[in-house]
């Protein structure tokens, strides 16, 4: 539970993450993900409730816990006064590593983040993807047991995202516990063993990506477009096709176990969609179903 004055950011959540697990917090902006992450990172204390990180109480052992965490914040807070390499060595010193050890570790991590050639550069001229990789490399400087990633790939191009995913997957294989927030569903499906969907400071669903899709969506989704006809006017005619019909401004989604059968039924009813797309249900469908389509930020 976390309150800021009258505002309740996190309204009672109950989560436990096992060592070695990759766990995700999903939710729209303002769902309470970042507040939760700050509490896990021991830089913000819960207003109420019990919190144990790596088996310890952050209110008492904050510094000791942080010594074993790797934190990648939502906004890069790299040090613009330092070079790429110095960003790593300086950070290592905060964890009490010796100068020599810090330098050795920095070289390893530059390699890991594919930034060896940029080691002497300042931070400012780096691309968004490079900065992000450097931030993640910096989070690994103390060889943490638990890595916290707050929206690790927001704002990156597809190439940079795939490279980052590959690096994060490597961390997962090394047995690190990953806790991440994201609102990219493909990212959650790629990286998370298990996740929760948050909305309005509460958990609205929990499970593996596959299990959530099975539980909250159907196997397939049919996307129908009708040219100039307004989707809202056509919903009545589609009643009973599939399990659920969701009209959007530009198209209609039909949730169904069998996409082809649903399309056949649509044509049998004399409707002539201008385009038809049958696809597998994704976590995004679950997400939109659970958290609604209205804009909250």
């Amino acid at each position: 539970m976390k309150r800021f004055g009258d505002f309740t950011a996190v309204d009672g959540i109950d989560v436990s993450v096992a060592p070695g697990e990759a766990f995700g917090f999903l939710g729209p902006n303002g769902a309470g993900k970042s507040s939760t992450m700050r509490m896990i990172a021991c830089v913000s204390m819960p207003t109420a409730g019990e919190l144990r990180i790596l088996g310890k109480d952050p209110a008492v052992h904050g510094s000791e816990i942080r010594a074993r965490l790797g934190v990648c914040p939502q906004l890069d807070n790299l040090d613009p006064d330092l070079s790429v390499r110095e960003n790593l060595t300086t950070y290592a010193r905060y964890f009490g590593l010796s100068r020599q050890e810090a330098r050795r570790r920095a070289e390893e991590l530059l390699e890991f983040a594919q930034l060896t050639e940029k080691a002497a550069s300042q931070v400012e001229p780096l691309s968004g993807g490079m900065k992000r990789r450097l931030t993640i490399a910096r989070a690994m400087v103390n060889d943490p047991d638990l890595v916290l990633l707050d929206e690790p790939t927001t704002g990156l191009d597809p190439q940079a995202r795939h490279l980052l995913w590959e690096r994060l997957f490597r961390l997962k294989q090394e047995g690190k516990t990953l806790v991440l927030t994201t609102h990219y569903m493909d990212e959650a499906e790629q990286l998370c063993d298990r996740l929760v969907v948050m909305d309005g400071g509460r958990i609205v669903a929990e499970g593996s990506p596959r299990a959530l899709i099975e539980r909250y969506s159907t196997a397939e989704v049919v996307e129908l477009r009708f040219g100039v006809l307004r989707p809202a006017d056509l919903v009545g005619k589609l009643e009973g096709v599939g399990e659920r019909v969701d009209p959007l401004p530009d198209r209609i989604l039909v949730y169904t176990g069998d996409g082809d059968a649903a399309v056949a039924e649509v044509h049998r009813r004399g409707l002539a969609p201008s385009s038809v797309l049958v696809r597998r249900s994704s976590l995004e469908d679950v997400f939109l179903h659970l958290t609604g389509r209205r804009l909250v930020d």
Binding site: A41, V43, S63, E64, R66, A67, L69, V71, P73, L75, N77, L78, D79, P80, D81, Y91, Y94, F95, G96, N142
Partner: peptide
């Protein structure tokens, strides 16, 4: 503005 201390406080430094 530089959020230097924010980054530092994610480490054991108090």
């Amino acid at each position: 503005y530089m959020k230097t201390f924010e980054a530092v406080l994610a480490t054991p430094v108090r």
